[in-house]
Amino acid sequence: MRLVGEPWTPASADRWTYHDLIVSILSPLAFVATAAGSVYVALGEARGWFLLAAALGLGLLIWAIIDRKLRAQSEAFREREEAHKARLEDRQTWEG
């Protein structure tokens, strides 16, 4: 499986893969870098720009890794959403 550009199918996208693990590690790092970077920039410190650049880079990497998978997952769920919705309403009204 390629890290970026994997041709996801609905079935393969529904599985937890190392792509999910990697974005789950990168994403908090992006948040910490954004918080510290933006406060440093606001206080006029140059290192803030490096941190913000790192946060931006991490954000783009996260997007490149996971967005195609999210699209495939959305497609997979859309196919079965109406059936689940009907079942949800049946349960809501004690008929399911």
Binding site: D20, V23, S24, S27, P28, A30, F31, V32, A35, I66, L70, Q73, F77, E81, H84, K85, L88
Partner: peptide
């Protein structure tokens, strides 16, 4: 608020698909 950093790729998807 950074709970969403991981939630976006884990619990958010599960909850959205539950339709609750």
């Amino acid at each position: 608020t950074a709970w969403a950093a991981i939630s976006a790729f884990v619990s958010t998807k599960i909850f959205r698909r539950s339709l609750a």
